[in-house]
Structure formats: C-alpha cells, structure tokens
Amino acid sequence: MTKPAEKPLENLLQQIALDHLFIESLVTRNSDRLDFHEVSVWAVKSALMAAYEAGRQAAKPD
C-alpha cells in the first residue's frame, strides 16, 4: 500500500518515465513485453536530468 506522502513522488516518477522513456506504467505486470523496455542512452540521460532537477526544486526552501 502506498503511503499518502509517497503519492506525489509516484506521480512524478510516472510522469518522468512517460515523458522521457515512453514507458506508460511503472507497475510490474509480470510480462517481459510489458516490464522490460529498450531505451536510448539519451533518453536515460534526459530522465536522470529531470529527476535531478525535481530533487533540486524539492530541496529549495519555501
């Protein structure tokens, strides 16, 4: 069960996966075709940069 505080993080990770890696779901579906994805190195770099930037924004004082 996902804790309420984890929901925004899950949503952010899902959005990064969709926007940068073109992965529609991060839920394990027990299917090689659905659970394993071939992605380019530039897409991985882009996703990592987005995650890093999200962390930087979250760490800024309000």
Results as ranks from 00 to 15, higher is better:
9 L>K: 08
36 F>I: 13
38 E>K: 14
27 V>F: 06
12 L>W: 02
48 L>E: 11
36 F>A: 10
41 V>T: 15
42 W>Q: 07
20 H>K: 14
5 A>F: 14
22 F>T: 07
27 V>A: 07
37 H>L: 03
54 A>D: 02
55 G>R: 10
14 Q>M: 03
60 K>Y: 04
53 E>T: 00
44 V>W: 03
15 Q>E: 15
40 S>H: 01
16 I>E: 01
43 A>N: 09
25 S>L: 02
53 E>Q: 10
15 Q>S: 15
39 V>C: 13
29 R>S: 05
30 N>W: 08
11 N>A: 13
31 S>P: 08
1 M>E: 03
49 M>E: 14
28 T>Q: 12
51 A>V: 08
42 W>I: 04
60 K>L: 15
6 E>C: 09
37 H>F: 07
23 I>A: 04
32 D>Q: 11
6 E>G: 01
25 S>H: 05
4 P>A: 15
35 D>N: 06
22 F>D: 15
40 S>Q: 05
30 N>P: 03
54 A>Y: 05
36 F>D: 06
19 D>W: 04
23 I>R: 04
58 A>F: 00
6 E>K: 03
53 E>K: 03
21 L>A: 07
49 M>Q: 14
34 L>P: 01
58 A>C: 02
27 V>S: 11
61 P>R: 15
36 F>S: 09
7 K>W: 10
24 E>C: 05
55 G>K: 11
6 E>F: 10
56 R>G: 07
22 F>W: 04
32 D>L: 13
21 L>I: 08
20 H>I: 03
3 K>W: 11
54 A>R: 05
52 Y>K: 08
5 A>G: 06
38 E>V: 15
61 P>I: 10
31 S>M: 08
60 K>N: 08
10 E>I: 07
58 A>E: 06
47 A>Q: 01
38 E>Y: 06
52 Y>S: 11
19 D>F: 04
56 R>Y: 08
53 E>V: 01
23 I>N: 05
19 D>S: 13
62 D>I: 09
31 S>A: 12
31 S>K: 12
60 K>E: 14
59 A>L: 10
29 R>E: 13
4 P>H: 12
23 I>H: 07
21 L>W: 03
11 N>W: 05
9 L>S: 11
62 D>F: 13
3 K>G: 04
36 F>G: 00
30 N>L: 12
15 Q>V: 03
55 G>H: 11
62 D>G: 14
26 L>K: 08
22 F>Y: 08
9 L>F: 15
15 Q>R: 15
40 S>V: 01
7 K>N: 08
4 P>D: 11
8 P>Y: 03
25 S>P: 04
